[in-house]
Simulated assay, not measured.
Amino acid sequence: MFLIAGLGNPGRQYEKTRHNMGFDTIDELIDRHRIPQGGIAHKGMYGKGMIAGEKVLAVKPLTYMNLSGDCIAEFVNYYKLDPESELIVIYDDIDLEPGQLRIRKKGSAGGHNGIKSMITRLGTQNFYRIKVGVGAKPQGWDLADYVLGRFSAEDREVVDIAIKQAADAVEMILEKGIDAAMNHYNGAGKKKKTQE
Rank of each mutant, 00 (worst) to 15 (best):
S152Y: 03
G69E: 10
I26V: 12
G133M: 08
P98S: 03
Q37N: 15
F127V: 11
L81G: 06
K80D: 09
L67A: 14
I161R: 13
M1V: 15
R34E: 15
F127D: 04
I178L: 09
D27A: 07
G187S: 12
I30G: 11
A58N: 09
V159G: 01
N9F: 08
V134R: 03
L148H: 03
G149S: 07
H33W: 15
V159C: 08
D92I: 11
K80N: 13
K176Q: 12
K105Y: 03
I72H: 00
I119L: 10
I35C: 08
A169W: 00
M45H: 10
G11T: 03
L81R: 05
E86L: 09
I26L: 02
H112W: 08
F75R: 02
E15Q: 10
P138S: 06
A136L: 14
A109W: 03
Q195K: 07
A188H: 01
D160R: 05
I26P: 03
D93N: 08
D93W: 08
L67H: 13
E74W: 02
E74Y: 05
G38Y: 10
P83K: 00
S85L: 10
E154S: 09
H19D: 01
D160L: 08
M172H: 01
E175V: 05
H33D: 14
S108W: 02
H33S: 10
A5P: 03
G123E: 13
I72L: 15
K116T: 12
L122N: 12
I161F: 14
Y64Q: 10
L101Q: 03
K60N: 09
V132Y: 04
E196Q: 10
F2P: 07
L174K: 07
Q125E: 10
V56I: 10
T124S: 12
T25N: 00
G69P: 04
D95Y: 11
G38R: 06
N77G: 11
E196D: 13
M65A: 11
Y79P: 05
Q195V: 08
G135Q: 04
D93R: 00
D142E: 09
R102L: 02
I173P: 04
G47N: 04
A73S: 12
G53F: 08
L3M: 15
K106G: 09
A41S: 13
Y78E: 01
D142K: 00
L7D: 05
P36E: 15
R32K: 14
I178N: 01
I88K: 00
E154Y: 08
K192L: 14
G110C: 06
K137V: 15
Q100E: 12
K105M: 02
G187W: 05
E154G: 06
E74M: 12
C71Q: 05
V132N: 03
R121M: 15
S152I: 07
M50D: 12
T17K: 02
G114H: 09
P138T: 06
H184W: 13
A58Q: 10
S117V: 11
E84V: 06
D70K: 14
V76D: 01
D24H: 12
L143E: 00
I40V: 12
A52R: 01
L174C: 02
G99R: 00
L87M: 04
G6R: 07
M21V: 12
Y46L: 09
V76W: 04
D82H: 10
Y64W: 14
M21D: 07
I72K: 04
